[in-house]
């Protein structure tokens, strides 16, 4: 019903098992007592920063300091504008979280429909996947027209960019039930609703969290890129504005904070996953 059409496998393919693998691998790396797995990348990172600070890259690529600011300058900009940056980070994060929640929820509903009525619901899945192929930058002006230049416009952009991943993954999870478990349900004379309630939704949880993890990154990107063009607040706004007025260090400090916020957001969702999936498997056992 869905695997075959190219657009539907848009997000799922590959990315789906990726975060899980990354997670275990990084966990393995960092849980151990400081071995080469930890200090080697750290050392490399520090070396990179030092070379940057000593203007090696500037000489290599013939760059001026106003083009590529030094790490120390970025740090200063970060320190001097910390309270402003922090409030903007909160604003952007709020857009991202709000949009992701709405987008993931609607994606889940689409998945429910597509699983319950494969023949006709499947079409909605393809449409959602197609929506995902619309470049965010093209969505921004439209959402601006519809929702003004407040938080709603970015939340809408994020909603549009996070729906597909959830719809496709959740649908996969709801369809990938053990046929024997399905037979068991039929032996109980369970109706469509019961099959969903007792089997499919439970079964989709790991997939749902995979989608949520994909969506954390996507939502931060959506929020920031959305702010580039029609906004008066937020990290993306400050970033593009700082670049326009050649305040490079401030622009870079926005990126630093966006990265930190993105990683934190991801780690929180990952933490939630651990809690929920444990509940899930304990319920099943």
């Amino acid at each position: 019903m869905m695997e075959g059409s190219p657009a539907t496998s848009l997000i799922t393919t590959g990315n789906e098992s990726l975060p899980a693998e990354l997670e275990t691998r990084t966990a393995q790396r960092f849980r151990k007592v400081p071995g080469p797995g930890l200090w080697l990348p750290l050392l490399a990172g520090m070396l990179f920063l030092a070379m940057w600070e000593l203007q090696l890259f500037h000489r290599l690529f013939d760059l001026k300091k106003y083009q590529l600011p030094l790490p120390s300058a970025i740090y200063e900009a970060l320190r001097d504008n910390f309270s402003l940056l922090l409030s903007y980070t909160g604003y952007t994060l709020a857009e991202a979280v709000l949009g992701m929640l709405i987008g993931s929820a609607s994606g889940f509903v689409v998945a429910l429909a597509a699983t319950a009525w494969p023949r006709w619901g499947g079409g909605s899945l393809t449409l959602v996947a197609a929506l995902n192929a619309v470049p965010i930058v093209a969505l921004a002006p439209i959402m601006n027209l519809w929702f003004g230049d407040g938080i709603g416009s970015r939340a809408a952009i994020v909603t549009a960019t996070t729906m597909a991943a959830m719809a496709i993954n959740a649908c996969k999870g709801m369809s990938a039930v053990d046929p024997l478990a399905l037979d068991l349900m039929h032996s109980y004379a369970a109706g469509k609703k019961e099959v969903f309630r007792y089997l499919r939704i439970q079964n989709s949880l790991p997939y749902v969290f995979t989608a949520l993890k994909i969506n954390t990154t996507a939502s931060m990107i959506g929020a920031i890129v959305g702010e580039f063009f029609f906004s008066s607040r937020g990290l993306g706004y400050l970033l593009s504005n700082s670049i326009k007025v050649a305040k490079m260090p401030l622009g870079w400090s926005c990126i630093v904070l966006a990265a930190v916020a993105g990683v934190l957001f991801y780690l929180i969702v990952e933490r939630l996953e651990k809690v929920f999936i444990r509940w899930h498997s304990s319920r099943r056992a």
Partner: peptide, 23 residues
């Protein structure tokens, strides 16, 4: 060991945000 942690981290940060910087 050198590249993997950075590659993973890069998947968690909003890369498109770098566009104006690179420009």
């Amino acid at each position: 060991r050198l590249a993997f942690p950075y590659a993973v981290a890069s998947q968690m940060i909003p890369i498109l945000g770098l566009a104006p910087i690179i420009y």
